[in-house]
Write a protein that binds this DNA or RNA. Structure first.
Lengths: 129, 129
DNA sequence: CGGTATCCGAGGCGATACTG
DNA sequence: CAGTATCGCCTCGGATACCG
């Protein structure tokens, strides 16, 4: 029942991670951790993202309370995004994960090559006989 | 150019996170951290996963060197999956992230409700006028 | 037992065009 | 400036059926 509990607990975790660790979130979070940014400022900082995806990412992050959106009613309007206190607390666990990735990238690269080699051997084995 | 560097570095990170933090990986990793498992043992432990997705998940994790697959050539064959030393090192950063999620779930829930409320107000505002 | 093969629908994401 | 709207691809994952 321990296991079953973990699995039930896990569903919201998964949903949350999907929202916070999606394709562009880390770049955005990274940028907003340094300073508050305007929309187009973020686009320039992350050139590969499209308007649509950036908007979607910002909405998701805002919805989950890790960033805040404030509108200054000038003409034309100015919009400023900034990280929230909650968002700041996300930094250290995420950084830990990225640090893990950096440190172990060589080992992972080796593992991938070995895997590819094993695959090749298998297929040539099947062909031989 | 600091920024540009970070972004170029980030691509492999993203790819890696996509492979390791995908829908079922955490459950599988969690299970294999406790003990080595047979294929169907994992299915029973994680009842919601389909054969196909479990196979795909195991292959991905194996490819990246965090789990190992060993085949015992009996009849019928027995397959055993176990966590690798590399895989074990993944635990602490992942746990940190899950701990963050658990701790802040209430705050996130509040943020979502506020967001929903703001959305409603906006749409009713537009209808009024 | 431990998988493959195939079909399918939902959703993520990009490209492009348009707007207050 | 800061978006929305639309289209279309493409991958992920579930359902189902079959296999050594």
């Amino acid at each position: 029942m321990d296991t079953a509990d973990e699995l039930r607990i896990e569903a919201p975790h998964r949903e949350l991670l999907d929202q916070i660790l999606d394709k562009w979130s880390l770049s955005v979070l990274n940028e907003l951790c340094e300073r508050p940014c305007r929309f187009n400022e973020l686009r320039r900082a992350i050139p590969q993202v499209t308007q649509k995806s950036l908007t979607a990412t910002l909405r998701r992050l805002e919805r989950n309370g890790v960033i805040a959106r404030e509108v200054v009613s000038t003409r034309p309007v100015a919009v400023r995004y900034r990280i929230t206190p909650l968002g700041k607390t996300l930094r250290s666990p995420v950084d830990a994960l990225l640090a893990w990735a950096s440190q172990n990238m060589p080992a992972i690269e080796r593992a991938r090559q070995e895997f590819a080699t094993r695959e090749e051997e298998e297929s040539s084995f099947r062909l031989e006989r």
